[in-house]
Amino acid sequence: MLEARLPQASILKKIVESVKDLVSQANFDCSDSGISFQAMDESNIALSSFLLRADGFDPYRCDRNLSLGIKFASLSKILKCAGNDDVVIIRYMDDADILSLVFESPNNERISEFDIKLLDIDSEYLSIPDQEFECKVKMSSSEFSRICRDLMTIGASVVIDATKEGVKFSATGDDGSGSVLLKQSGSIDNEGRGVVGTSVEMVEPVSLELSLKYLNNFTKAAPLSDSVAINMSNGIPVMFQFDVGDIGYIRYFLAPQIKD
């Protein structure tokens, strides 16, 4: 059986909102180390994944490895019934075909329970090797959202150029072109003002062209984290990571566009 109590429903709500438009259904893999998932979009261009470590739950119990097939549209609708500050308890009894979600209000005076039907999903699994990236950019997630939104008004794709100076996002379209340069700033710490600067750690300058449609989907994870890490190497898929506090992360991999 699985029983996992997450102190704040808002975390699960935000996670589901940030993947539901990219993936319609996927297996949640549960083990004694936590709950994870990975799935590609239908066109095999983007991979979404997340991990919530067992220590992010209190308590967490998973007796054996489970693969629970979930339809994201259903889970999203059910999670809308939870208050942001509700406690959510995820429960699965062995050999059942449903997953139970219990929402408890902060004062424990309102307890709601929803069951979601599980699916039998035969999904493809991508083996992503542990790799060292040539360039690691860390920047404000809200800044990242703004840049993707702004450049979408110009073109369908963005070129990300990372150099020692900083990181530049450029788009070109039929009506013109636009670019935003973020210079490296001294500290990426919040420094109590909620402002996250930009840092670029690099072995080599990297230049990649990516679809803005996908990047705009990834920005739905921005409410989970003040910062986003963009890990890039020339010519291979980019990894975007949004940390979920210190209990896990959401990662997206996006295949770059290739020059003919």
Binding site: M40, S43, N44, I45, A46, L47, E124, Y125, L126, S127, I128, P129, S157, E209, S211, I236, P237, F253, A255, P256, Q257, I258, K259, D260
Partner: peptide, 14 residues
């Protein structure tokens, strides 16, 4: 002109 790459051309699918 550029063409959209696919993840399965970079990673092993199982």
């Amino acid at each position: 002109q550029s063409q959209q790459g696919r993840l399965d051309s970079f990673f092993k699918v199982s």
